[in-house]
Design a protein around this nucleic acid. Structure first.
Length: 187
DNA sequence: CTTTCGATGATCT
DNA sequence: GATCATCGAAAGG
């Protein structure tokens, strides 16, 4: 399976399928363990009300990045999906760091490696992503997206930090990971 | 341990 | 003027 082949599917197939892949930026990154799907006709999606100056890359070619500023402070990154005439993407929420740990620690300055990439804003900071990367093609350097060696077990939960369509289970997390943005609550 | 709240800027109403 | 796909420090229990 190549990234281009995975991107042929629906936003939800792409989101679930991306879990376990490795994302690298200039050789720095890790395994994708948590994402969220933002589909067309999704009130929580930035693309819901059509294209604007911020979300334009969501309406561009699949396999590119949509990077936006969040709460005026952080950057968040999506993988753009193929939805002709609409905008859709998969928000990258957490990685299990595997490559370039030293560079990530330099950028993040946190005591615990668990905090390097466990959140959409943390992830972009660790990888050095910013608005300059909005629209960038993930199939070309300095980016690399590598398939997993074995399939992951993925669970669906409601998405985090939104106020519309809050009950849709469109967050995809690798079962058993300790690198997601939220630890599983005790039962 | 949990909850609250400020930062900060683009977009929406 | 309000909201927001967030984070981290501070305050409370």
């Amino acid at each position: 399976m190549t990234l281009a082949e995975l991107l042929q599917g629906s936003v939800h197939e792409v989101a679930a399928g991306l879990v376990g892949w490795t994302l690298l930026v200039d050789g720095v990154g890790g395994r994708i363990v948590e994402v969220e799907a933002y589909d067309e006709d999704d009130p929580a999606s930035h693309a819901y009300r059509g294209a604007n100056a911020r979300n334009g890359s969501m309406f561009g070619p699949p396999g590119h990045l949509y990077v936006y500023r969040s709460y005026g402070i952080h950057w968040c990154a999506n993988v753009v999906c193929e939805r002709p005439g609409h905008g859709a993407g998969v928000l990258l929420r957490a990685l299990q760091p595997t490559h370039g740990l030293d560079r990530m620690r330099d950028r993040r300055r946190v005591a615990d490696d668990r905090l390097l990439c466990s959140g959409p804003g943390r992830l972009t900071q660790a990888l050095g992503l910013s608005g300059a990367d909005d629209g960038a093609d993930l199939s070309r350097p300095p980016f690399a997206v590598l398939p997993p060696s074995a399939p992951s077990v993925v669970e669906r939960t409601p998405r985090i930090g939104i106020s519309r369509a809050v009950e849709q289970p469109w967050r995809y997390v690798e079962v058993g990971t300790s690198w997601s943005s939220r630890r599983r609550r005790a039962a």
